[in-house]
Amino acid sequence: MKLILTQQVTGLGEPGDVIEVRDGYGRNYLVPRGFAIQWTRGAEKQIDSIKKARSAREIATVEHAKEIAGQLKALKVNLRTRTGSNGRLFGAVTAADIAAAVQAADGPELDKRRIEIGNPIKTVGTHRVSVRLHPEVSASIDVNVLEG
């Protein structure tokens, strides 16, 4: 199945890339979640607009990505959320919550789609989260989840 990615998918490519995947993966996962659209000659024309939108919000150079990674490394990120009696959260911490907490801690503005949470954050404490700043540069953030 031939698809055009509309969002970055780890291991497949960037928005605007034309990829070839198995039918079930494309039909049951990528297309319903909005990660890709079916490739057609008409959709081929949309690739330029997808790539322009990507370049507008993308960190352009490796040096700029490394600079942002240095800022993130020096940052203390605290996130207050509602908890139960035993320190478990009501729900889980999302990538949007982390992006907002980084910005509240006077950090750089991050796109929530670039934040990768390994295991769902459902407890109070310090958790490590990775951020893909550039295809060649990624950074780690320690997020301290607090009751409150």
Rank of each mutant, 00 (worst) to 15 (best):
D142R: 13
I37H: 05
V137N: 04
W39R: 10
R128C: 11
T94E: 01
A65K: 09
S130G: 07
I141M: 08
S49V: 13
T83Y: 07
Q46I: 09
Q7K: 15
K122S: 02
R27F: 05
V145L: 05
E116T: 14
D111V: 08
R27K: 10
S85D: 15
Q38G: 13
E14D: 13
V102P: 02
K45H: 13
G16D: 01
A69K: 10
L12Q: 07
G13E: 04
A65I: 05
T123Q: 02
V62P: 05
T83L: 02
P32I: 04
A139G: 04
I141A: 02
R41F: 09
A92E: 11
Q71C: 02
I59K: 05
I47S: 06
R128F: 13
Q103A: 15
V77G: 03
D106K: 14
F35M: 12
V77E: 01
R54D: 08
T94K: 03
R41I: 10
T40W: 02
T61A: 07
V129L: 00
I47V: 10
V18R: 13
A105W: 03
E109S: 14
G26I: 05
L89N: 07
A69N: 00
I59F: 07
R33Q: 15
Q7W: 09
S140M: 12
H64G: 11
E20K: 14
D97K: 00
R33C: 01
Y25D: 02
I121S: 03
A74I: 10
G148K: 05
H64P: 01
R22Y: 12
T123C: 00
D17Y: 08
V129R: 04
G16S: 04
A60Q: 15
R41S: 14
I68K: 07
E109H: 12
P15S: 10
R22I: 10
H127P: 02
I59C: 03
D142C: 10
D17G: 06
